[in-house]
Simulated scan of single mutants.
Amino acid sequence: MTAKRARLLIVGLVLAGTASACTPTVRLQVDPIQIYARLDADVRVRLDQELRDLLAENPNLF
């Protein structure tokens, strides 16, 4: 290996290391959401009320 090639190799490695150190990092953190249980309970109450209304309007449905 010649001295010129060795210098080019070293310069290339230094430039690659410098370029990779400047690469931006994006991190996304999502906090847990506690709305699922409340939403599920609300939907069940609404469906239960709609079912009661439907049965009151059509007593021979089932």
Rank of each mutant, 00 (worst) to 15 (best):
M1F: 08
M1L: 12
T2Y: 02
T2E: 00
T2W: 06
K4S: 07
K4G: 06
R5K: 11
A6F: 00
A6N: 04
A6P: 03
R7K: 07
R7S: 11
R7N: 09
L8T: 07
L8G: 04
L8E: 02
L9M: 05
L9T: 01
I10Y: 01
I10P: 00
I10A: 07
I10H: 02
V11N: 01
G12M: 03
G12F: 01
G12S: 05
G12D: 02
G12W: 00
L13V: 04
L13R: 02
L13I: 08
L13H: 03
V14T: 11
V14P: 01
L15N: 03
L15G: 01
A16H: 03
A16C: 08
A16S: 10
A16D: 02
A16W: 00
G17K: 00
G17D: 03
T18W: 10
T18N: 13
T18Q: 10
T18I: 10
S20V: 14
S20G: 07
A21Q: 02
A21N: 04
A21C: 09
A21R: 02
A21E: 09
A21M: 04
C22F: 05
C22L: 08
C22N: 06
T23M: 09
P24Y: 00
P24N: 00
P24V: 01
V26R: 03
V26M: 04
R27W: 11
R27S: 04
R27P: 09
R27T: 10
Q29H: 04
V30I: 05
V30E: 00
V30F: 03
D31N: 09
D31H: 07
D31G: 11
P32S: 10
P32Q: 07
P32H: 05
I33Y: 04
I33L: 12
I33N: 06
Q34N: 12
Q34H: 14
I35F: 14
I35C: 12
Y36C: 11
R38T: 13
R38E: 15
R38G: 15
A41W: 01
D42R: 12
D42I: 12
V43K: 10
V43H: 08
V43Y: 07
V43M: 13
R44L: 13
R44E: 15
R44W: 06
V45F: 03
V45S: 12
V45H: 06
R46W: 11
R46A: 15
D48V: 08
D48S: 14
D48G: 13
Q49G: 07
Q49K: 05
E50Q: 11
E50I: 13
L51D: 03
L51T: 02
L51A: 07
L51K: 05
R52E: 13
R52V: 14
D53P: 06
D53W: 11
L54E: 11
L54V: 08
A56C: 11
A56V: 09
E57K: 15
N58S: 14
N58A: 14
N58P: 04
P59L: 07
P59V: 06
N60D: 05
L61I: 11
L61R: 04
L61K: 02
F62V: 15
